[in-house]
Design a protein around this nucleic acid. Structure first.
Lengths: 193, 193, 193, 193
DNA sequence: GATGAATGAGTTTTCATTCAT
DNA sequence: TATGAATGAAAACTCATTCAT
């Protein structure tokens, strides 16, 4: 069952094309060609290029959130381990959610409320999760942070966000993945007791 | 003396406009208007939108390199302090070199050799400088790195690159700047002995 | 039935306009105006000015070939008469196929393979037909050629090609047409027995 | 002595460039580059693109006229031989006067009086020479023309004009030259007694 | 649901020409 | 004489969007 609906089919093509060329360089025409459909269909189902992009991003976002929720819900591992798992999982999931990244760029659609909404929601959600984690870790004496927990959490998310462009460049991911665990150790060591 | 040449005048207008709207959303028309010149002048001096953008990026790059060279040449401070200075200086300079950032995005100009050339040259230069620094610091017993120095240097540059988009968002820089020193401590602590 | 398709409608307008002003002096705007359509439609259907011109030329070419095929298939007339008919028909048809002519100019689109392909195909086809005709005429003792049949055929086609620019100048055709039959006699007399 | 003046230098560059790309595809910029001078110099010396082209054509024309004058002044050879010499010489000279050809194309600068003037002057001059020649030849009983001498002369010039584009295509000249004498025989045989 | 056709505003680019120096 | 700089009008081309069928 669950044959992919026409809408899903278009969404998939849109995601692939946007992630390859970025929002501006992608023409509706390109997406239609990829989906082997007419341009009109895109407008029938999504209304506009922006709304189509939103749909693509939202889709990725939900998958990311679902995956991270599992990590944070971990009741067994200690804070440091969870933090590590979070970083690894984030990298892994976002590898296949490149469009969300695009919304995080400066200058990207400064005026579109959608982006600001999405951005704030997701980033703040991640930051909240990490703050809670750090809070717990500090109480339990596993971690020690000299500065403001909120700012630290924010910058940690930024660090991870920032790593992605480089990580996902062709070839780079595979080469760096091997060292990633090691690097996380360095970063977490900085906040360990 | 040294009145700014017409070309420099245009370059300045281009830099400001590109950095405000990004490459794609900037029209040659916009730049010309900003410079109070005719569009044709831009083509007379730079040949095409791409080449103009290249010129803008190259300009920024040279300034960045010059500033960082001074930092790395520091013969007095110890490795950890230089590393810290490097990070701070990089953030500071790039705040006014936003166009170079644009070239570092995935998907940006995948096919333009210029970008790849520029990217590689600058990144590799930074990586080299850091490796030397770490090498010295390790010999002198100030630093201790568990993994490969090359990979570590590469990832450090990536981390810094990645921070920028978020740092330079309106308002964010000023808010985060205060905590930056503190954060660098965390990061460098991770590799200190 | 068989209402002209939109594409055919545009093609007609393009043909008329190109033939009036030539390739370079014709603006897409002009063609669109002639067709009472928007410029965009031309790009929708043909992709570029060049491709549109190609389509125009190909159209004319097919008509020319069809008309000449009938002449060469003539099983009744003798070689000399067919040769004469060919020359007359060619002039007559090409009077309404002026765009193909443009491709035959030296320097025209030196680099476009399309033109070279088209040129060679058509010219070689004509040359072949004439060679066969001459071959038959010689065997049957109607014609006598001192030199190489191939070269003669090639030059004959060139002669005819060369006549056209002058023939189709405003007014010239009508004035010279009356004498054309007479002139063909002179030319064919040169190879008659 | 007679160092080439700057003006001659520019004229040479213009001639070469026009003949390579044709009038429309040649930019003043191209000519200036070829001459290693600034665009402004062209305007200083010639005033406009059109006037520059005129100068180029006039130059060629004078050389052609001079060469043909010698041929027609031949008091020894008979009419047929002179006609043959004329054809051969015309081909030979025009091989290096390709720009004049451009003015003979339909659609070329329909509105420029210069072209019409030039065209008429030269063509009529040639036609006149040939008419006189044919007149003489007919009186002396060497030639026999069924039709109007004027029209015949005009068409003969056209034939020769028409041959050139093909003759001067790369390679074609050398291949066809060998047979040219033979072909002239065919053509002149058509009007011989 | 789907699409072929059409559109028009916007964008890059070209280039003959002008002119101060 | 010569030229670097500037210009602006015109041209090719792009593309999100609309709509009748």
């Amino acid at each position: 069952m669950s044959k992919t609906t026409p809408k899903q089919h278009l969404l998939k093509a849109a995601s692939a094309t946007f992630s390859k060329y970025g929002f501006y360089k992608t023409a509706m025409e390109d997406i239609a060609a990829k989906a082997q459909k007419a341009k009109g269909s895109l407008y029938y189902h999504f209304g506009s290029k922006e709304l189509l992009f939103e749909a693509v991003v939202l889709e990725e976002l939900n998958q990311l959130k679902a995956a991270l929720t599992v990590v944070f819900a971990d009741a067994i591992s200690d804070s440091r381990a969870i933090l590590k798992n979070y970083m690894l999982k984030r990298m892994e999931v976002l590898r296949y959610a490149p469009n969300y990244q695009e919304t995080l760029r400066p200058n990207f659609y400064e005026h579109y409320d959608f982006v600001n909404t999405v951005k704030e929601e997701m980033v703040q959600w991640e930051v909240q999760q990490i703050m809670q984690l750090i809070g717990r870790g500090t109480e339990e004496g596993q971690l020690e942070l000299p500065g403001d927990h909120l700012v630290y959490s924010q910058v940690l998310v930024m660090l991870l966000q920032g790593l992605e462009p480089n990580f996902y460049l062709k070839g780079e991911y595979d080469r760096l993945e091997a060292h990633f665990d090691n690097l996380i150790n360095i970063i977490t060591k900085g906040i360990s007791k």
